[in-house]
Amino acid sequence: MDITVLFFGQLAELAATNETVFQSVIDTDALKIQLHQKYPQFADSSFIIAVNKILTDQNTPLFNGATVALLPPFSGG
């Protein structure tokens, strides 16, 4: 089971990549725990999560092939 994780803005800079793959994460809460283990530099960063481009503010199950985007506060315009 592969979950693609996309990083944007400051998170892409902190992770030094735009994208990574996680295996065997069943939901977004589990993913957050793994993210903070793999990227302790995210500790002070706030972000919201989009699963397959849909924003979610609660724990969301993840299925094989899902794309999860980590979105720091927006600053367009």
Partner: peptide, 20 residues
């Protein structure tokens, strides 16, 4: 609502991330 991010670049090539 638009997922866009602005990186403010300073004259000495350092930067910071903008927040609306």
């Amino acid at each position: 609502e638009l997922p866009v991010w602005g990186k403010e670049i300073f004259e000495d090539d350092t930067h910071q991330w903008k927040e609306n």
